[in-house]
Amino acid sequence: MTLELADVSVRFSDTLALDSVDLSIADGETVAIIGPSGCGKSTLLRAVAGLQALDSGSISLAGRSLADVPAHERGIGLMFQDHALFPHLDVAANVSFGLEMGGVAAKEQASRVAEMLSLVGLDGFADRSIDALSGGEAQRVALARSLAPAPSLLMLDEPLGSLDRVLREQLTADLRALIRELGTTTLHVTHDQTEAFALADRVVVLRDGRIEQAGSPSELWHRPASVFVAEFVGHTNLWPNPMGGTDVVPLTALSIVDSGQAGDVEATVTAVTFREGRHLVESRRADGSMASFEADEAPPVGGSVQLRLDQAKVINLST
């Protein structure tokens, strides 16, 4: 269902956690909000869920204003950071809680719980106690719990935040498949751009409570609106342009030239990391700015390299 935020502001004592945010999410769309910690992204989710009062602006869901709708009547699914499972209830009771609140009959609850647990790959976990779950299992139960009442909008707050890398990657893939399958409108908050790019149709970069840029993952990467966005999505080579502004140089714009030949750029190698069959080479130009690139052969650390620059791939940000 369509979610619409218009001019939303939230103030905590002397700081603006959200500063006139306008955001519109289409039916069935998956949007990720990324930003450093403290940028207001969790506040945004809490505001939509009705757990945080607005200082100004309005939020509407499917064309209906949520201003006077308390949290428990919004019908929005929210999966909390670190899950917030009810520790005194078992897995089944956690998942069925929302169904029970919605007045679903007991028999239907049981079958829906089984269906949800199966959906997240936890068949047979119904009677487990919350204490006995691993981090990944708790994450799946939390997801099942927020999906069980079939919310019109699903919100995920750092859903994979506390998990280790291998588990994250696996669950990211599972989550993406699940969201696509259900077609639920999803709003997803994370500080990890890889996770956001993997899950979302559209990514919103939030900085100090303001939207810095919104667009597809590819747009953010190829046309970052600011140095902040460029750095946040993972660009490392940011060179001052003599004509003004900053040049963002993707890794792929740089390649090493054969020894003895002159390149466009000279740099000193500071580190080499072997990564997925190639070498990630970090080097610095004379002015100290970073020049990272990939190479088949590792150049010696401390040595100087000549690099060819593919000018067409360079993005100029005029500040």
């Binding site: 869920a49 909390f80 917030a84 809680f97 719990r145 009442p149």
Partner: peptide, 21 residues
């Protein structure tokens, strides 16, 4: 953890129900 209460509210429990349950 207050988020347990908030989780209950998001799942449709009124403040009183969340307190009781």
């Amino acid at each position: 953890d207050r988020r347990e209460t908030e989780a209950a509210m998001v799942l449709g429990a009124s403040p009183m129900t969340a307190f009781r349950r």
